[in-house]
Design a protein around this nucleic acid. Structure first.
Lengths: 249, 249
DNA sequence: ACGCTAGGTGTACGTTGTACGCTTGTCAAG
DNA sequence: CTTGACAAGCGTACAACGTACACCTAGCGT
């Protein structure tokens, strides 16, 4: 009578089922909808049942990151460090784009799970294998930063949540709003105008994120390559061609 | 008898006092401790009183970002785009370091307040004034990303919350843990070892964050300069020396 | 002296993570 | 087949959160 299950009924829960459901829920309903209660409901189970399979929500999120990492392609062999890293990063990016919640969760994580450490380790290994000194590797890893995961701090775009929440903008008031913005923020307006072919949105939508990402990635990789070829090995050891640090005034 | 106020007693609340208290609380107790209730308590007031001065917590956080932006030095004039931008970014970074919560809050913000737009606008203006094309400016702004705010996705360091939460690590078990890690993640271990002069921490503490930041910043700025000097103006207009995008295999 | 309004109060609701103890399903050993 | 133990799932409960809503009140212009 309680009518609890929708289908298969008594399929024992386990860690994988919990993780898969969590990822699916986050994919479909957004990370903000991922509460222990909601997840439990999705699994036809009482909230506290989850705690038999994950220690707490933090650990759940950590585990979800591990799922993510497992989706990234293994390093491609034999084509030189530059293209190997490029491919790896773009693979990571593809994963990230499949899971809109990934960026936010990755940013919030503070614990380094084995899977994350493994990814980092293999990533560092690619530079070392390419002949980079330990020091240079260290620095370029920092320079890559979150780009290692295939994402960038996107400062312009929408929260990617429930779409189409532009409820009832008066069709012409928008133009006025835009004109006012162009007046107050002329420079933003110029680049936004230039980039907005597709949508007539107010600010900077309609630019090719993938192009922007690869543009910056290649800029960095080229920089790395130059340093490496110039024999840069360590901060103090050989300031032959360090980035010219024009110190202040 | 109720013993409510600690000192000045009936000093009328206002928006500035609320904001200042919020910033101070976040600075001292960490952003996680900044709840409306805790903030109200800090001000000797009932939680709901705050809502007469800020619309809700989101707006509070937005306003806190505005406080931050106001602390960043105005653009330095007359020294060329490169050093102007460099100085501005490093000024932003100094602000960020004063307010440990800033990174997390900035990352979470989705609304562009006027102050944020103003900062972005002035930032874009520096590139344009330096002779960058609108398109190139667009791309380099993306490439800068969050570095515009003086921060990077620091993937290695601690949450910066309450310090010294290493409770009672057996003095020698740590060495064993480290040895095990070096075995499983040899590459991480190599760069961590090389960077750890100061502390004997397990992973990558004790590297010079400021150096890492400037290293990457200068790498990018140099890349921008090179593109600019080579006459790069637009994606399709002149592929004279685009970043060599070795597409896939 | 009056009354208007901005500012502060009190209560209450819904939602969150999760501690603790009880019950029940499942399987191995007797 | 019975039994007993252990893992899995349940139910209740609590503290903390953001905030809606109605109320009271202090201080000011008239």
């Amino acid at each position: 009578m309680a009518g609890q299950a929708e289908e298969g009924r008594r399929v024992r829960l386990n860690r994988e089922r919990v993780l898969a459901a969590a990822v699916a829920l986050a994919d479909e309903a957004g990370i903000d909808s991922l509460s222990m209660r909601r997840l439990a409901q999705e699994l036809g189970v009482v909230p506290m049942a989850l705690y038999k399979h994950v220690a707490n929500k933090e650990e759940l999120l950590d585990a979800m990151v591990d799922v993510l990492v497992a989706e990234i392609d293994p390093p491609a062999g034999g084509a030189g460090w530059k293209s190997a890293i490029r491919q790896r990063v773009l693979s990571a990016r593809r994963v990230l784009l499949r899971h809109p919640w990934a960026r936010q969760v990755l940013e919030s994580r503070t614990r380094q799970t084995p899977a994350v450490l493994g990814y980092t380790d293999s990533f560092i290994g690619m530079f070392l294998a390419g002949g980079f000194s330990v020091d240079l590797t260290h620095h370029v890893m920092h320079a890559l930063g979150s780009r290692m995961w295939g994402f960038t701090q996107e400062l312009f775009d929408a929260p990617a949540g429930p779409k189409a929440d532009a409820p009832a903008v008066p069709p012409e008031a928008l133009a006025a709003m835009f004109r006012q913005m162009a007046e107050r923020y002329p420079n933003v307006a110029r680049v936004a105008m230039a980039a907005a072919h597709e949508e007539g949105s107010v600010v900077g939508h309609g630019c090719d994120d993938q192009f922007e990402f690869e543009f910056a990635l290649d800029l960095l990789l080229d920089g790395f390559e130059r340093l490496h070829q110039q024999g840069w090995t360590s901060r103090q050891a050989k300031p032959a061609r360090m980035p010219p640090a024009s110190t202040g005034t």
